[in-house]
């Protein structure tokens, strides 16, 4: 589902965030992306969501080589990747319903379908009934869950989350992880970036460790063909 081949990313300010990263995530898999702050986790996620393009190497997401995707096809591509942020990035002056419905609005869904899907997404994150509430009236954990509802409302095949539990206490964090596991069970490919190693160990899932812009153990480049064969 997601393949990185010797990917390097240098930002315009000259900082090299990734020097050579190769990794593979199979369809329907759920993996963690760990490493210290600044190791390059966020950059990997940005490359997957096509918020950035690789400087060198290939990023292939859902069959698309993102480096060469023309700008006019980027929006349609992004609709297939749900993104959850640590700071949730909700629109604070819009009620929960509008926030969650945004991916459907930009895709031009009908109002009827929108209502149905938004309620289904809110139901999944346990916030049904909060449609007309403003995000500022919700707790941090609830805001995070609204962000997740927005990421899954259009049922994207890929869900990526950047430190989704960073601002949450352990109980709320565990709830969010359970939610991701459930989504993964119904076939969504999930990638969670976190520096919470406890969370990773508890889950028993594969973890890709990034150190100084490279993969540290866990995912040697030679492992690629075998994982490819698992498709």
């Amino acid at each position: 589902m997601i393949t990185f081949q010797s990917v390097a990313k240098r930002y315009r300010n000259g900082r090299e965030a990734l020097s050579s990263v190769s990794l593979h995530v199979a369809p329907g898999e759920m993996v963690f992306l760990t490493g210290r702050s600044g190791a390059g986790k966020s950059t990997v996620l940005k490359l997957i969501a096509l918020l950035e393009r690789p400087t060198r190497g290939q990023v292939i997401v859902a069959g698309e080589r993102t480096a060469k995707l023309p700008a006019r096809r980027v929006p349609a591509f992004r609709r297939r990747v749900g993104v959850v942020f640590q700071d949730h990035r909700l629109l604070i002056d819009r009620p929960v319903f509008d926030n969650v419905a945004l991916p459907l609005i930009v895709a031009g869904s009908s109002l009827k379908e929108m209502g149905k899907r938004v309620r289904a997404a809110l139901d999944q994150v346990g916030l049904l009934g909060s449609e007309r509430v403003l995000p500022s009236e919700l707790s941090v954990g609830e805001q995070q869950r609204v962000g997740i509802a927005r990421a899954i409302v259009s049922r994207p095949p890929i869900l990526i989350a950047d430190e989704p539990t960073g601002n949450l206490d352990p109980v709320l964090a565990a709830e969010v992880m359970t939610l991701f596991r459930r989504l993964n069970e119904v076939g969504v490919t999930v990638i969670v970036a976190t520096h919470d190693l406890h969370l990773v160990q508890e889950s028993g899932l594969r973890a890709i460790v990034i150190e100084n812009g490279r993969i540290a153990g866990g995912e040697p480049e030679t492992a690629l063909p075998t994982i490819e064969a698992r498709r």
């Binding site: 006019r72 929006p75 349609a76 992004r78 993104v83 990035r89 930009v106 895709a107």
Partner: peptide, 16 residues
């Protein structure tokens, strides 16, 4: 700005 960025993030086109 925040609204525009989020809209683009979830797949809003420039036209939208």
């Amino acid at each position: 700005r925040a609204e525009i960025e989020v809209t683009k993030l979830v797949g809003g086109t420039n036209g939208f």
